[in-house]
Amino acid sequence: MSLAALQHKVVTGLHRGGPAPCQLFADSRCEARFAVYRASYLANLTEALRDVYPVLDRLLGPDCFTGAARAYIAGHPSASGDLHDYGAAFAEFLGHLGPARGYAYLPDVARLEWLAHEAFHAAEAEPLALRRLGEIPPARYDTLRFRLHPSVRLLASAYPVQRIWQVNQPDHAGDPQVDLDAGGVRLAVYREGLLIALLPLSPGTYRLAEGCAGGADFAAACGQALEAEPELDPGEALYTLIHHKLLVDMNNEEEEGGIS
């Protein structure tokens, strides 16, 4: 048997379960010993998911979370040698999971936790200082392309996921109640120092940030932002993004490579 064929049989046995591929092994206690590998395979992936989704773990309870994780693992083998890459499709999976259907906010909580996971490991970058903006003649603002800080992720949800996230942090001491009918939220998810921060944004400010993320120049991004929120003051929205250090620098079409 080739090395590839042998390895495929082992991986199939680990992933699908069922009888151990004992024809490969010389051990008399093969079933029990292969079970050690199988348990370790499932535990590694389950705990990787629990690490990324601690709020879901609290919401579902550890046993129910483990059940959901096992069902996810069955349909989603790991595709990377870096365990931190595992679990990106958990939100979508929860949306289709029968027992979770009565809890429509769970997929958005999962989305928020995955974005927080990405933000946690994202690159460092010097935030855009307000004074840099002052050095640009206002007539040239329209062509500036502001860029989001590498740790910034954007999430819009029809549920109060920021509140759900906050009351399920280990150090939350206040009222644990969440009003699920409180309405949706548009969030910037980012790293502030060593911690994850969530900042609610107005519809127009959120669209402005989306425009920056998509590479739009300031004029185009403002146009989209005003469509989302006609009464928006674009200058104030830009200030909000700069004040919270969500922008890094800007590319000006006349100045290759940006100005910062």
Partner: peptide, 25 residues
Amino acid sequence: CWTSVGGMHTHDLLPLPYTEEAVRH
């Protein structure tokens, strides 16, 4: 050791068969 095949990663440190083929590989 090996941890993956066919693009599927087990995140477990699995032993190789101890053969000359595996040594060369």
